[in-house]
């Protein structure tokens, strides 16, 4: 069909791109994860599993990883709880203002991530909007400390930031459900509620899964929100990686953590894709 020269010309740029900017860095990362840093702060090109051993032995690493997963899981659940009803309402009940609502739902994506994180900082801080309001209403006498610099602040901010990413796949899954299936369900005697649980929800599962995967994976690797709002108790695994590559100057250990994260995420994506294929009907 197409000439060899044409196919080469079309496929070469993406292949080069993927090679240069993805495969080569990953390979470098993989190599680094076996190397060590000498007492003189020089990289020693030795092939050892010391870094990986350290990950298991030193509590802070795997504990932070577990905490990051726990934060990501909460973000995932809350984004779904927010995104699903919104997507359902938009897809099935917002007849006239559908486009407007849709734009409103995804408009936060147009605002810089940093701005949104800072916005929460001003809301949650001890002199922030929320605390001032609570004190003004005499609900508290002192500013509530747990609002900012806590896992709570991280979960809240990340949920706000990643809900549109959960909303989009859920919404498109709901939009793909043929409306005559809903009519058929009513026709066969099922009420609104029964129709939702027996037809709409099962058919939306691939989108729910995709949305959940987005929220979990993006939240898991996030480092800005914990940096700005997390405080000492809200540190996530990426913050450790950042400091290892920066001030601590331990690229090999940082690489080992990154590589573990990469494997974790790839495994998650693999199973999520498998499940999604099984749930989506031909």
């Amino acid at each position: 069909m197409f000439s060899r020269a044409y196919r080469l010309a079309v496929s070469l740029p993406p292949v080069l791109w993927v090679g240069m900017f993805l495969l080569v860095p990953y390979a470098l990362l993989f190599c680094y994860s076996f190397w060590t840093v000498s007492a003189q702060q020089a990289i020693v090109h030795s092939w050892m599993l010391d870094n990986y051993r350290q990950l298991v032995r030193v509590n802070i690493y795997w504990q932070t990883l577990l905490r990051s997963m726990w934060i990501a899981a909460r973000v995932m659940v809350f984004s779904l709880l927010l995104a699903f009803p919104l997507a359902y309402f938009l897809s099935f009940h917002a007849t006239r203002r559908k486009d407007l609502f849709y734009q409103l739902a995804i408009i936060p994506l147009w605002v810089s991530y940093l701005v949104r994180a800072y916005a929460w900082k001003t809301i949650l801080g001890s002199d922030g909007v929320l605390n001032t309001l609570l004190q003004y209403a005499h609900l508290t006498t002192h500013p509530l400390a747990f609002l900012l610099y806590s896992p709570f602040a991280v979960v809240l901010t990340l949920t706000h930031i990643y809900t549109p990413f959960t909303f989009l796949p859920v919404y498109s899954a709901l939009e793909r459900i043929p409306r005559n299936l809903v009519e058929a369900s009513h026709d066969l005697g099922a009420s609104q509620w029964q129709t939702f649980w027996r037809v709409i929800f099962p058919l939306s599962l691939p989108g729910v899964l995709a949305g959940a995967t987005f929220a979990f994976v993006l939240a898991l690797g996030d480092f800005l929100a914990p940096l700005l709002l997390g405080g000492p108790s809200g540190i996530m695994i990426s913050n450790i990686v950042v400091s290892l590559f920066g001030a601590a100057y331990n690229w090999p250990l940082g690489s080992a953590i990154s590589f573990c994260m990469l494997l974790l995420v790839l495994t998650l994506l693999f199973f999520s894709e498998k499940l999604e294929k099984r749930w989506s009907v031909q």
Partner: peptide, 20 residues
């Protein structure tokens, strides 16, 4: 009566079978 209370059933043009 709402559709689900009517003693009436429909065969749809494109069958509308539940794919799942």
């Amino acid at each position: 009566l709402p559709a689900y209370r009517r003693p009436v059933n429909t065969v749809f043009q494109h069958y509308a079978l539940f794919p799942h």
